[in-house]
Design a protein around this nucleic acid. Structure first.
Lengths: 189, 189
DNA sequence: TCGATCGGAGTGAATGTTCACTCCGTTTTT
DNA sequence: AAAAACGGAGTGAACATTCACTCCGATCGA
């Protein structure tokens, strides 16, 4: 069971699973190695240290997530449609990938993650940024600081998905649409 | 500096500060002891183990927080007024006590905290519970699962306060009122 | 009143455990 | 056969918890 170019992948997958399920501190390198069917030392052939492993994992998940969310996005459609499109895709992705959601949550709570989050939210590449800015200009969206609007959108999202994953509040398409609607009511002028 | 009955208090305060500032895993007992001006062993005179120390701290903070929030609450006033009152008080308290906010955040992310949170949210003692139920009956509040409404209320709250505490989005009374207003728009039918 | 004795709060060096990470012998690939 | 990849016992640092001891105010006997 040696000599696989995809040992790297196995390590990343094991890391995702362990961190998502048991938190950062329930994922010692020894356990990651075991789960990945790999020696401890092998981890260090592919990643300088545990920190780099985690960052790399984040970057790869982020890229996948982004690609999914942007599928079929109409850069120039009506504000409200674009808003629904983005929200729906994010909900869909995170609900379909609970491990990734748990991991991202942990990551953004950690010291590295906080910096990443800011950078991400403030980046012009973030489609929500343009969306909200435009919405404010057109008088469709409340004239509040963008960060505050982000809070109104992502706050409920995180909360509600957490409850879903823990089995407290099973979501379905109808319910998700209702949350998105409520979120829209919150930011709409 | 010996023989003080308030060593217990000093230990609790040090724990709050260290956990709030550096997280659960940045608060070793050795550091708590140092910060409290106390020997390491002394911690174990007052608390069976670190876990009990943390639980106790939570209970005391929770009690203070609750007392503050309920000040002047009109059990029978109009739904909307009660909603504003509770929200405003929670925001006020958490903004005035950033250390407690950070601690509670960490606590509710931990395995113990999750159980506590459910218990709390589902408890009939929770004033928001009665509020939302009544609101739904009167047709003022959207007919959505209570847990979902909680998400719409507390999600933005947590997000926005986090951003405030990290200096990204300085809040003031006006801004807080605007968030509460937006939150109301989200849950209002 | 005062010296002796006692109880228990307070202490921190020592202990056992858990980790991230290294090092080098082994296995696989070329 | 040489090089590259791999494995996992070993290492040292960090941690929670313990326990043999200190010290001081209180109590007691004279």
């Amino acid at each position: 069971m040696s000599r696989q170019a995809d040992k790297r992948t196995a390590i990343l997958r094991a890391t995702l699973k362990l961190i998502a399920e048991h938190g950062f501190h329930g994922a010692p390198t020894s356990m990651i190695a075991e789960r990945a069917g790999v020696g401890v030392g092998t981890i260090y052939r592919y990643f300088r240290d545990k920190e780099e492993l985690i960052h790399t994992l984040y970057e790869e998940l982020e890229a996948r997530h982004r690609a999914f969310v942007m599928q079929g996005y109409e850069e120039n459609g009506p504000i409200r449609d674009r808003f629904y499109h983005l929200c729906r895709n994010i909900y869909r992705y995170l609900l379909a990938n609970p491990l990734e959601f748990r991991f991202l949550e942990q990551y953004f709570d950690s010291p590295y993650g906080v910096a990443k989050m800011r950078q991400k939210l403030e980046s012009a590449g973030e489609p929500f940024h343009a969306l909200l800015k435009e919405g404010k200009q057109q008088g469709i969206v409340k004239d509040l600081p963008t960060l505050l609007l982000f809070g109104l959108i992502f706050g409920p999202m995180i909360n509600v998905i957490k409850d879903h994953d823990s089995g407290l509040l099973p979501l379905n398409d109808v319910l998700v649409d209702q949350v998105i609607r409520a979120t829209w009511d919150a930011i709409q002028r």
